[in-house]
Amino acid sequence: MSKIFILDTEKCIGCSSCAIACMDQNDIEPYEGDIPFRVCFTVEQGSDKDSPFSYLTMACMHCEDAPCINSCPAGCLSKDMDTGFTVFDNNNCIGCHSCAMACPFAAPCFDKDGKMVKCDGCIDRVRAGLEPACVRVCPYDALQLVAKEDYEKEQKYKKAKILAYMAFDK
């Protein structure tokens, strides 16, 4: 069953726990030159005290019609049919960065050998019935992984200020 990541921007406090859990899960060492898959940041729209202000956290959106897949000349990216996650096998990756140019969300990262790496939705954890590391650690349930069907059906997701981690964030 296809799953999607959602972020309730009203609940997120920008604590960065999700980004740190992601680094821990994926053995990312930023001080050794690794690029984190998940980033947390604030967006301030204007400088008045009432200006809108949001905390966001972003990693691969696992787009439904993922443009990165067909952009890869070496066939490294594909869809996992069970989870809907955009997964990769970077064995033949040539480091051309074409996937980065196709991705609207700056998700592809590169390791020290110049090979593409990115969020795989913690697919091994999810297959084992666990939550992705970022979701598991969020203290406010701001970041969640939900079944796509439920997201589309359930009213509660419509009401909240949700950033749906799907293609071209609508």
């Binding site: 940041f41 967006v43 966001l56 972003m58 980065a100 991705c103 609207p104 969300f105 700056a106 590169f110």
Partner: peptide, 30 residues
Amino acid sequence: NYKISGILKNHLTKLLMGGDSKLTIAQQGL
């Protein structure tokens, strides 16, 4: 910088297809 290339490419394409002329909040933040 390769990271921002996809955001800008998609933005430019979207503009030409008559889509929303604004970058999304997430894209601006990135």
